[in-house]
Design a binder for these strands. Structure first.
Lengths: 166, 166
DNA sequence: GAATATATGTAAATATATTGACATTAAATG
DNA sequence: CATTTAATGTCAATATATTTACATATATTC
C-alpha cells in the first residue's frame, strides 16, 4: 500500500475525494503496519514454545473439533487463505518439530490428510493458553460491541478485496 | 494467531470469557487473512507496473512532500514498522529497477539517504493513480464515519501490540 | 580526552508467502 | 469408454520479514 501518510493524492480530484484518499491511505497503511507487528508480537509471545504466529493458525486449524482425523493441504490452503505452496512449507517445518504428520487420504489418491501428532496435541494444550493470554493483551480495552464492529469492518474489506482476486 | 474458528478455548473459563475468546480468535484470524490477501490483491493490482504492494509503501514514503532529498534506512524502518534488514532488501530490489538510489548522508558518516530517481518519480505518478483506484475498490461502500472508526480500532490494536514489543 | 555505550547499515540464516510448473489422479465431456 | 479438462500436492524461483551478528561511526560518561 502507499502507506505514505503525507502522500500527494492523484491530480484532478475534488477536495472531498482528496480527503477520502487520505483517509483510505492512512487506514490501509496502518492496517499493513499493524498486521505486521501482530505477527512479530505473536511470535515473540510464544517464543519459549518455539512457535511462530503463523504456525499457531495451522495447528489451530488441525485442532478444530471434527477435524482430528485430518485436513487436506488444499483445505488448509483455502481455510487459511494462503497458497498451497505456503501451507506445504509450514507443514514441513511443523513435521520437523514432530507436531504434525501427513497420511494418504483413502478417498482420493492424490491427496494427503494432515493431522496433529500426539506430541502436537500436547503442545496445542499449552499453546492455546498462551494464545488466549495474547488475545487479552492485544484486545485489551475493546468492548464486546467494538470487537463485533471491528470484525464487521474486516469482513467488508475482505469481501471487497475478494472481488480483485476472483 | 490461532485463527482456528472452531477452536476449543482454554479450560477453567466462564461462559463469558469463552465467548470473548471466540470473538477475539475470530477477529484476529480474519485480520491475519485479510491482511494477507490485501498484499496479494494489491500486488496483482499493479502487476503491469511490476510493483508489489510492499514496494508501494517504500516508494510512497520516499515521495512524501518534504522528504525528497532523502530518507535514512533507519527512518524508513521505523516509519514502515519493518526491520532495517527488510528495508535493505526492499531497497536493493527497487534499485535494481532504477526506482530509488542511496547517497551518503553528509550529516552522519554511518548513514545513507534514500531517494527516488527521476525514473522513480515518473513511476510514482503512474503508481499513485492506480493505488487510488485500488483504495476505491478495497474500501467501496465504507462511509467516512466507518473509515474513521475502523482506523480507531486499528490504532488501538497497534498500541496494545506495541506494549508486547517494547 | 579516553573509555564505554549506542546507533547505522549490511551480511547471513531462517521462516513466510507468492507465482509458475509438473506428475499423478480424478472429474467432466462427447 | 476415450479424450479432455481440472484438481492435488510438491518442487523451484523470487519477494518479504525476522533475528543474530558485526564493522564503523556517533553519542555518552567520567
Amino acid at each position: 500500500m502507499s502507506k505514505s501518510e503525507g502522500t500527494a493524492p492523484p491530480q484532478k480530484r475534488t477536495p472531498a475525494s482528496d480527503e477520502r484518499f487520505h483517509l483510505s491511505n492512512r487506514l490501509l497503511f496502518r492496517l499493513f503496519k499493524t498486521a505486521n507487528i501482530m505477527h512479530t508480537a505473536g511470535t515473540k509471545w510464544t517464543s519459549e514454545l518455539k512457535m511462530t504466529s503463523q504456525q499457531w493458525s495451522v495447528v489451530g486449524a488441525l485442532a478444530r473439533p471434527g477435524y482430528e482425523e485430518g485436513v487436506s493441504v488444499n483445505e488448509l490452503s483455502k481455510f487459511l487463505m494462503v497458497s498451497r505452496q505456503n501451507v506445504n512449507g509450514l507443514l514441513m517445518r511443523l513435521e520437523q518439530h514432530g507436531i504434525s504428520q501427513r497420511v494418504a487420504d483413502p478417498r482420493d489418491g492424490r491427496a494427503k490428510l494432515v493431522q496433529l501428532t500426539p506430541e502436537g496435541w500436547i503442545l496445542w494444550r499449552q499453546l492455546i493458553r498462551r494464545i488466549s493470554e495474547f488475545y487479552d493483551v492485544a484486545l485489551a480495552s475493546f468492548t464486546t460491541e467494538e470487537l463485533v464492529q471491528f470484525q464487521y469492518f474486516i469482513d467488508k474489506l475482505q469481501r471487497n478485496l475478494g472481488t480483485i482476486l476472483k
